[in-house]
Amino acid sequence: MTLLAQAAEVTAGDTAEVTLFWVFAVLGLGSALAVITLRNIVHGALMLVLNFLAIAGLYLTLQSAFLSIIQVLVYGGAIMVLFLFVIMLLGVDNDDLLQADGRNRLLAIIGGALLAGAITFAFVGPYTSAASICAEEAPAAAAGQYDCVGLDYEEDDGAGVAFIGRSMFTTYTYPFELSALLLTVATIGAVILARRRDLTPEDEDEVVGDERAEPTGAHPDDRGDPDLVLEGDDAGAEPRGEG
C-alpha cells in the first residue's frame, strides 16, 4: 500500500487526483479481495463488476478516457454479462467449484505471490528507487535511470481516441483488416459448433452387438446427411422459395 501511495504522490501531486486515486485503489483492492473470499458466487461476480469499475476509475485519473470507457463497456458490460449468464446456467447453488484442497491452495498462494513479486519488482520497483527521476521538470532519462513517462503519444488529441483511430487506418491497416478475418473465422466457427441438427455422441448411443458388426467398418459417428451439410436446413428439405 505504501508503495502505491508513494507512487501516487510522486506522479500526481494534485490533491484531487490523489484523493480519487485512493478512493479507486481501496475500492479496487477491496472488491478484488471480496471476489475471492465471498462464498456466494453471484456476490463474487458483482464484486468483480465493482473491481472493473474501480480500475476504469484509475484509468480516468491517468487521463486515459478512452481506455476507461472501453474498460466499462467490454469488461463491465460484455464480459460480466457472459460471466453471470454462465453462472446462472450452471446453477447459483453449485459451489463445488469453490472447494480447493490444501495442496492446490498452497500452489495458488505461491504462484500468486511470485507473480505479485515479479510485477512489483519489474514495474513499481524502478520507479520508486533512487534511480528514477519523476520531478516536474526532469531531464530525459540517462543510462540506468528511469523516466516517469510511459507512453508518450500526442497530448492534444481527445484522450487517445483520434490517435487510436489514426493509427488504425495508417500504421496498422494490415492487422486491422486481419482482425476482420478473425471475426469471420469466429462467426463460421460459431455456426458450425452451434448447428441445430445434431446427434448424441456415439458412445452414448445404444450399442447393438459388437463394435465390428458393421461390415463396411464405417466410422463410429457415421450417421447424418448424405452430401454437403449446411446449417439451417431441415433434413431432406427441398430448396425453399422456389418460383
Partner: peptide
C-alpha cells in the same frame, strides 16, 4: 465417409 463434410 465420416459424414462431416460440412460446407464450411
Amino acid at each position: 465417409d465420416r459424414r462431416i463434410n460440412r460446407a464450411e
